[in-house]
Write a protein that binds this DNA or RNA. Structure first.
Lengths: 214, 214
DNA sequence: GCCATATCAGAGCAAAAGCTCACATTTCTG
DNA sequence: CAGAAATGTGAGCTTTTGCTCTGATATGGC
């Protein structure tokens, strides 16, 4: 245990345990999982299928994830973090613009995100309610809510007497519900969908829906 | 193939195959399935558990249902039919009332239905999207939409230039999303929830939300 | 009572799914 | 290059689960 030569640095030399931990493999597995879910739904989601689709062995999968649910949870987390980043980018205020313009960008992001992989998005929403979400995921969700609340605050007197935080949560749910339904084939074009979500959102907020923002 | 004696009724005499088909047993199984889903979610939903919870044997279960998904589908159908009946009762117009009063009754029914067994309701919504729905279920869903569209039609000029059918669908999704979220513990009281759903619904329709109906 | 028919029970089977482990391969260090 | 550490592999073990099948029990008409 004791090192014999004073020349060697005292405590750190052998400690650096090679934590290579190929992040690429983790991403590969998550990609495989996402493709399985999008193609076959929850039924098709099993560890053998995920590993095969990702091009790795089950052994490798279990090296990075303690179990099936952990893969699901990691997918949820990745999705939440990515969406939160998009939302944060979208709400950055442009000089002289109305708060409605920011809402419009939020709608763009939300609709695009949900329509990108509709089935996957729906399943992740469902599973997010079932799994105990880790701190990072919870924080991402909170950040999304905070972003929306921030935009609503810009509205000022336009939204007098409204519980901003509750409204932010409700708006997320409303947007998700309408885009989910559209992703299941009920809706029409992306533009039409966005118009309807805007109608629902601005309607909830109590401001007229038809008229473009500045 | 030819029958020898003209005296015996030609084809029907031995045919009356005792189709007792204990409807009570079917209901019992569905009740068990509902309780399993409400208590343990989709994970806990397997045929052995359902049969045990219902107090029947697996053998009996498979006598009435061809497989696991059929139980799920029957549950979805029962729920849809029940909800459709409630909706139909709710929209019956009272003399001299505003169309908003009917909307209010619809909200009562919808919120109560979803909050009665929140987890079950959410799972049924999810599974309804996955399973191929039989004619009866599809008809019930269509009836619900038609009821809502009927109420919206009473609004007349108040809703000029709105796609009534699409609006009916959107409103269903919005109401479900908000009540689902509330059922997961996010929301507060039933009254508060109803007020928020009304805000969303009337907001979508483009009429002011605060003021009671006649 | 007696037979035919309908209904129910539950042991157990075959397939699927979650997961492990002994070994192979790659990568890093000296 | 040699040895060690990290990483990857996949056959196969264990448990779960959807379902079947043989036999037992209840019911109805004669």
């Amino acid at each position: 245990m004791a090192n014999s030569h004073p020349r060697t640095p005292p405590l750190a030399p052998r400690k650096r345990p090679r934590q290579r931990r190929s992040a690429a493999t983790v991403e590969t597995i998550l990609d495989g999982a996402a493709r399985i879910l999008e193609a076959g739904g929850l039924e098709a989601f099993n560890t053998n299928a995920v590993a095969a689709r990702a091009g790795v062995s089950v052994g490798s999968l279990y090296q990075y994830f303690p179990g099936k649910d952990a893969v699901m949870a990691a997918l949820v987390r990745r999705d939440a973090l990515g969406f939160a980043a998009q939302v944060e980018a979208a709400i950055a205020p442009r000089p002289g613009e109305s708060w409605r313009a920011a809402v419009d960008r939020l709608l763009d992001v939300a609709v695009a995100h949900q329509l990108d992989s509709p089935r996957l998005a729906r399943i992740l929403d469902f599973e997010e309610a079932r799994l105990p979400l880790d701190a990072e995921t919870a924080q991402a969700e909170a950040a999304i809510q905070a972003c929306i609340a921030g935009v609503l605050l810009r509205a000022g007197d336009d939204l007098a007497g409204l519980d901003i935080d509750q409204a932010a949560g409700d708006l997320v749910h409303i947007a998700r519900a309408l885009t989910d339904a559209a992703g299941r084939g009920e809706g029409a074009s992306s533009e039409d969908l966005k118009a309807r979500v805007r109608r629902a959102v601005l309607g909830y907020l109590g401001v007229a829906a038809n008229m473009t923002a500045t």
